[in-house]
């Protein structure tokens, strides 16, 4: 019981912050406090995003040396998927069969991608095709994902995620890690098959944290800062126009302006 609660400490933090923030916003106060409440509220969301991106034992999503070639082909619309769960117990050297399966899949995916440049319907078909590819290599997914790693295959991160994760069976707790773990590790680029082995071997040693939520949250932080700035600017203007930033007083003044009489219960100043 306690373990269950404690394990999810990050969510407790998020929920506490969220409620605190909302409470500050809604309870009467002065406008600056409202803005601060809003910030606390938003911060909870930032933390929420960051925690779902975190993989236990993962490092910052910066490529460690060893396969610099991976940076080149980033324009090629393809990404490698790496099941995080797989990373723990995977054999370092993929078998030859796995490699082949991986590169087949890569080709298929490449085609799909090529089509989708112009033709959405084709892309849709492609998406429909993918399950077929999955069933073919589902049992060996971890290995395959390994192989695929340096080799730049396709597969939408989540596609793999779905294979790994069966949400109905898994609790709230496991899901984030599993789901995000699935696309937790991405590298881009083309590599010769020969270098795949190296790269895969290397990557297996390092577990990266999912960078996407972090990137998203960077954007959200920028938005949050902008909102705060606009809000504070408005507060300043309100102070200039009304001479107060207390909500009660503002409301009383607005009420008076609207109906020509004082709000019942408000004290004359």
């Amino acid at each position: 019981m306690w373990e269950f609660i404690l394990e999810r400490y990050n969510y407790w933090i998020v929920i506490t912050l969220m409620m605190t923030g909302l409470y500050i916003v809604f309870s009467r106060g002065n406008l600056v406090k409202t803005i601060i409440g809003l910030n606390v509220f938003q911060t909870s969301v930032f933390i929420f995003y960051i925690t779902i991106g975190k993989i236990a034992g993962g490092t910052a999503p910066i490529l460690m040396g060893g396969h610099g070639g991976g940076h080149d082909g980033q324009g090629d619309h393809t990404s490698a998927t790496h099941g995080a769960d797989a990373a723990h117990d995977v054999s370092v050297k993929p078998t030859l069969d796995d490699l082949r399966a991986g590169s087949d899949a890569a080709e298929a995916a490449g085609e799909v991608e090529a089509h989708s440049h112009n033709d959405l319907a084709a892309a849709m078909k492609g998406v429909e095709q993918q399950p077929a590819y999955e069933t073919q290599s589902l049992h060996s997914l971890p290995d395959m994902a390994q192989a695929a790693q340096g080799n730049s295959i396709l597969a939408d991160p989540g596609e793999a995620a779905e294979a790994v994760l069966t949400p109905r069976d898994q609790g709230l707790h496991d899901m984030p890690e599993a789901g995000l773990g699935a696309d937790g590790h991405e590298t881009l680029g083309h590599e010769a098959v020969t270098s795949v082995t190296d790269a895969a071997a290397h990557a297996a040693d390092i577990i990266y944290t999912n960078p996407l939520p972090h990137v998203l949250i960077l954007t959200a932080i920028v938005v949050g800062v902008a909102t705060t700035a606009v809000g504070l600017a408005l507060a300043v203007r309100i102070q200039e126009a009304y001479g107060t930033i207390e909500e009660d007083e503002l409301e009383a003044e607005d009420y008076e302006a609207e109906f020509g009489e004082r709000l019942a219960g408000s004290e004359a100043r």
Binding site: M18, V45, F48, I52, G158, A161, M175, G179, L212, P213
Partner: peptide
């Protein structure tokens, strides 16, 4: 912000945006 929270939950469940 509600929208973003909802989106985060969906991302947890699906891994895509």
């Amino acid at each position: 912000t509600f929208y973003v929270i909802g989106l985060g939950l969906l991302y947890q469940a699906t891994g895509t945006l």
